[in-house]
Design a protein around this nucleic acid. Structure first.
Lengths: 152, 152
DNA sequence: TATTTCAAACGAATAATTTTTGGTTTATAC
DNA sequence: GTATAAACCAAAAATTATTCGTTTGAAATA
């Protein structure tokens, strides 16, 4: 079995990275191999774990999510159990888009979208700061945010 | 024409947000309306701009992208033209996953994946710092990163 | 050089899904 | 109560995905 990825595989990943809803046929046409071959490759890429899923992009503003922020969070302990607890809790907080566990000044960075400043206030004061291992949070507004995906 | 979204629309968006490759049939089954109605709704959601696209998620480590960082960037000017220039340039830099334009201490935050520390060094010194309006950059390692998408 | 091997590519048939269509029902405004 | 538009449902048509047997091509071996 082929072990590394060849350029066709990279092309497939790259196409799907930017448009996960491309059909097999469309991909086959773009990379110029048979539909069945494209299908085989995508299946293998999925089985081997190169392709892990796909997210739709939605218009947050149209949904009333007018405020987008980055929240830098410091914990007062970095024990494994506390980290795990925070990841679990934070993943369930409404408004959280993405969570980063950081090795640096902040322990976590949360990318969050909320409707308005009241909701933001509630998020920080009622949801986050009530976790007793939170040392501090620092909130910064996002003016604009672009998915670039320039990694292939 | 219906203007706001009802709960079925929200369900559709929510399902696609977490799995953009769900078929029309699967969605119809989950939200318990006819396939054709689901189809109509998705078509409208797309036409009206609620659904904007979809990204595949790929396994970065398997592709040799072993280092993931957050780069906080300050510019020495915030003129519109410079902001636009930076967004354009940064979007084309290999390794950039996501770009945030911030209203705060940093002007931009870049989420970047690279192969190794040499590539990171090249990214910062050769690609970024050569832009003459860059005042400073601060790099922090990402230990773990989760897409949560808890917004619907 | 010929032969074997094996994964990938191919092509065509089948299965499944999506798209379209048209008639019926439902909701709302007048 | 009627008119109108949208939503719904079910069936047919078109398109796409999947399967599988065959062929091709490249590398390894005799």
């Amino acid at each position: 079995m082929r072990n590394e990825l060849d350029s066709k595989d990279i092309q497939i990943l790259s196409l799907l990275l930017n448009n996960a809803r491309l059909s097999n046929k469309e991909i086959a046409a773009k990379i110029e191999i048979a539909q069945s071959s494209t299908h085989d490759r995508i299946k293998k890429l999925t089985q081997k774990g190169y392709l892990k899923g796909a997210f739709a992009q939605i218009d947050q503003k149209k949904l009333g999510l007018n405020i987008e922020v980055i929240l830098a969070i410091k914990l007062n302990k970095q024990h494994r159990a506390i980290i795990a607890d925070f990841i679990e809790k934070a993943s369930q907080l409404p408004g959280v888009i993405q969570l980063f566990h950081m090795a640096g000044n902040s322990d976590f960075i949360l990318h969050v979208a909320v409707k308005d400043s009241d909701e933001l206030r509630g998020f920080i004061l009622d949801r986050l700061s009530t976790l007793d291992y939170i040392q501090s949070t620092e909130t910064t507004m996002v003016l604009h945010n672009e998915r670039v995906n320039n990694i292939l």
